[in-house]
Design a protein around this nucleic acid. Structure first.
Lengths: 182, 182
DNA sequence: TTGCCGATATATCGATCTGATATATAGTGC
DNA sequence: GCACTATATATCAGATCGATATATCGGCAA
């Protein structure tokens, strides 16, 4: 166990307060960390085994009727490992935005078609913004303040990005005014 | 050639106006699209072969002394493929921010230690902001407006993010005022 | 002029990660 | 009884990353 991946710490963090199955972890990730750190089954299940083998979590069988089910909870070693990671400076900062990539190369299109790209980006960001707002509405009662801070950050960011797209649309139209319509 | 990856279009876009070697493509990516779409040698060289095989680019030997060197340029088919992609709505929007992940789980740390996380995020964003500004200073003369728009977007975004970190630092300190020092 | 360093150039590989798919069972609605 | 969805685990091809290997070139300093 030389070095855990950030995804391993997602799991550690999510089983810290309550025991969870791999399926539940995936579901929670898809409603929370997904927006800045996604995880797929292909990562979660093997990682649960690694972490259990390393003694950072322990699994226990907890079947629902005839359907097998293993829930994991964190160990004292796991808690220590999680805190140690939290105290290290973060290393990974990545963004993949196909829309910005298209905008970057928009010169290859006839003048005026670039607005469609910023409009698509704006629409997508507003959609995510709405998703995050509905998550916020659901989670009003939780006491842990940090997930709330991060969630509000996501809401503010998607709004900022959408506004930037709007400004860029105007700027592009100002340079190619013949496409003002539509 | 069922479906090209966005990285393939990065290559198509970058060899569109001037012939470039794989090495040059990597260097240009690292100073431009890296901030929203990175590419490694492990992608670029195999992809150059795929694209050449598909007839979207053509390579020609252009050695420097005894050092072999292959530069690629786009074909008419490649230009068509690039434009067709630009007209499709973007699909990929991903972000991996280890700092936000740590902030999300900061409740596992003693009160007050969360400020270190937002400070580290802020410092990193300001660093990237400075990098982008120096790139902007170098590229003042280029006429293609779209890379400039994207670059300014990156500058504004990193600034916005740094400011958000600052606001969150104040908010966290307001909740745990005993850590005001340092 | 020799030696070293950094830039140019191509290539590869293990590890990670994604997205899709496969296989079951449980519960719900009709 | 049937269809459908949710729960639960698992796997795999392909994409990607980060690091490393190999080799040549140009410049510069001892």
């Amino acid at each position: 166990m030389e070095q855990l991946s950030p995804t391993a710490y997602v799991i550690l963090g999510l089983v810290r307060n309550e025991p969870r199955s791999g399926y539940e972890i995936k579901a929670v990730v898809d409603n929370s960390t997904r927006f800045f750190w996604a995880a797929s089954y292909g990562q979660i299940y093997p990682e649960l085994k690694n972490l259990a083998e390393a003694g950072l979590i322990v699994g226990s069988d907890s079947p629902t009727g005839g359907r097998r089910r293993t829930v994991y909870e964190i160990t004292a070693d796991g808690e220590e490992e999680l805190r140690a990671w939290l105290r290290q400076p973060p290393h990974t900062f990545e963004m993949r935005e196909e829309g910005l990539l298209k905008l970057f190369f928009a010169d290859a299109l006839p003048a005026g078609e670039a607005v469609a790209i910023v409009r698509a980006m704006r629409a997508h960001r507003l959609e995510v913004n709405a998703q995050l707002r509905s998550i916020e509405a659901l989670k009003g009662e939780i006491d842990d303040p940090y997930p709330k801070i991060v969630l509000r950050g996501g809401i503010e960011f998607t709004q900022w990005f959408a506004d930037w797209c709007e400004r860029m649309e105007e700027e592009i139209l100002a340079a190619a005014p013949e496409k003002r319509s539509s």
